[in-house]
């Protein structure tokens, strides 16, 4: 235990002298400012009219246009939905690229029996609209606080390689478990702190703290472990940086599903940040969804990442030759 603590403390001291650590910390402040002051509260209040041509559907937000060409042009320009009545009585829905699921949902709503009132019920417990800027908080937590171990763990590991201290570690009685746990633990603690700061300054403190802390701790652990295993195969910062940036870009893809929830193919759902973004949304905004699937997903990723990292770091970094 003292070995783990000693490693963690010294790694923290090394982090304090690392410029990238301060860049990430400055980014945290920037994101908080961005969410609170720069991002709009609602990005869809400008124009949400439905354009129609040759259909018998009329609603408050429906605007009739005079030709099919005009309809097509305005749908393209305004990024809205157009309903085109065809000669055979059928309807063509023109849209700027919505998923099929979304379009079907809209059509189902529009063409219900006209004598039925249509009500919209929001499923979040607090039963209020989440402003756009606040809604982006889970995204920033995932792509700033949680990946801190992925980036800085890699930086520390590469500096150990470049300084040659990794050779001294190899002949010290440390073992791969201590090495991994000390680094992962350190970055998870930092990630919890950063996530809390972001949540506190962007949303407030009205959320289940324990769930939030556990998700941040183990979520960050997953990224740290993947990062350490990944970085093991690189010799220096320059060759690592591009590959790291590429991998992080892939990890950011689930933000598409967060913006457009109906788009959630399997390949996107298997990216670890997918579950975490929605879990943060669930915790921070009280969406009322069960957290049990998230617990299993995060636990599975943690165990998998640990086993892979233990093998890779143990075999290719620490126990080379033993």
């Amino acid at each position: 235990m003292s070995g783990i603590l000693a490693l963690g403390i010294q790694d923290f001291k090394r982090l304090m002298t690392n410029a990238l650590f301060w860049v990430i910390t400055a980014t945290l402040v920037l994101i908080i400012v961005l969410i609170n002051l720069a991002l709009p509260k609602n990005i869809s209040e400008e124009d949400y009219h439905i354009l129609i041509y040759q259909t018998d559907h009329y609603a408050d937000q429906a605007i009739s246009v005079s030709s099919e060409e005009e309809l097509r042009q305005k749908v393209k320009e305004n990024g809205t939905i157009g309903l085109l009545g065809n000669d055979d009585g059928s309807i063509t829905v023109l849209n700027p690229g919505l998923s099929e699921k979304t379009v079907h949902a809209i059509i189902t709503m529009l063409y219900r029996s006209s004598n039925i009132d249509i009500n919209i019920e929001r499923l979040n417990e607090s039963n209020k609209t989440i402003p756009f800027n606040k809604r982006m908080t889970p995204v920033f937590i995932c792509f700033e606080a949680l990946i801190i171990g992925f980036i800085l763990g890699g930086v520390l590991l590469l500096s150990e390689k470049e300084e040659g201290t990794i050779r001294a570690m190899r002949i010290a009685p440390i073992g791969v478990d201590k090495y991994l746990i000390s680094k992962t633990g350190l970055f998870s603690i930092i990630a919890v702190l950063y996530s809390f700061l972001m949540a506190l300054f962007c949303i407030g403190f009205n959320f289940p703290v324990l769930s939030f802390a556990l998700l941040s701790f183990f979520g960050a652990a997953i990224f740290s472990l993947i990062g350490l295993a990944f970085t093991t195969f690189f010799k220096d910062m320059s060759s690592w940086f591009f590959s790291m940036a590429l991998l992080l870009s892939i990890n950011m893809l689930p933000v598409v599903a967060y913006s457009e929830p109906s788009f959630s193919p399997l390949w996107l759902r298997v990216i670890p940040s997918y579950s975490m973004i929605f879990a943060y949304e669930n915790i921070l905004f009280g969406m009322g969804r069960s957290l049990i699937p998230v617990v299993f997903t995060v636990a599975g990723w943690c165990i998998g990442a640990y086993l892979v990292s233990r093998f890779v770091v143990g075999r290719y970094l620490l126990a080379e030759g033993r």
């Binding site: 003292s2 070995g3 603590l5 000693a6 490693l7 010294q10 001291k13 090394r14 002298t17 690392n18 500096s159 300084e163 040659g164 201290t165 050779r167 001294a168 010290a172 009685p173 440390i174």
Partner: peptide
């Protein structure tokens, strides 16, 4: 091969704790 960003004392203290 020592940790360049740690002091000489910290370097030794660090390794001492590993044993």
């Amino acid at each position: 091969n020592v940790y360049a960003k740690l002091t000489g004392y910290e370097n030794l203290k660090y390794f001492a704790a590993l044993f």
